[in-house]
Design a protein around this nucleic acid. Structure first.
Lengths: 103, 103
DNA sequence: TGAATATATGAGCAATCATTCATACATCAT
DNA sequence: ATGATGTATGAATGATTGCTCATATATTCA
């Protein structure tokens, strides 16, 4: 499995989508949020603390990640638990983490 | 091989480095440049054309990629051929491409 | 030497982005 | 109902970013 990709010239939209995907992972706060979510679902407060940002800032970032379908919310009372929602991206992220930590 | 990473709270510097790596791949022009380089080394002009940007803009972007050691220059006369210089990142990129193209 | 070509680089600018602040909304407790 | 808590959201702001333009440097050719 896994046809090798010997790609070529990407269309504008394809390049944009790849860039958007990587861009979503291209901010330290979002990186910390995603790293925290590797442990399991967490609510906004906990994620804000894990990322070292305000709850409002966390909510904004979670919105971006939500819109890209990288995370999914689950409401429980007045808490909202977020979890990672794209296994491919999780693997991508872990590889990058691996690469950095092994630098 | 491959210790599973269950990582947690990243240090500020670790998060920053992961974010910088993804950020380097988080722009459509750079995505097109890297996609073009999957075929093999190319000079600045060719990369500019492949990315649909000016040669100056390409040179600027190549500088970023160079500073992150994602590409390496090889001078040949008055041409400078760039090639991909980080196999891990190449694999990361191809996975993302695969993911997007298979959406 | 002088002109042309390929690339690099700095300044300036417009656009994007991450955060803060104020506020709104929903849920729970009293 | 009232107040408190958790989250969401819009506007404003400061920082970053990708590009253009002008210019510099290096190499080749005449």
């Amino acid at each position: 499995m896994n046809m090798p990709i010997q790609s070529f010239t990407l269309s504008d939209i394809q390049a944009l989508r790849v860039a958007e995907l990587f861009g979503a992972l291209g901010d330290p706060s979002r990186v910390k949020i995603i790293a925290a979510l590797l442990q399991g679902p967490m609510n906004v407060q906990a994620l804000a603390e894990a990322a070292g940002i305000s709850e409002s800032a966390a909510s904004h970032q979670l919105r971006s990640l939500r819109q890209m379908r990288l995370v999914a919310p689950r409401k429980e009372g007045r808490l909202v638990y977020y979890s990672l929602d794209d296994q491919h991206v999780v693997e991508l992220f872990q590889r990058a983490l691996d690469h950095i930590l092994h630098n």
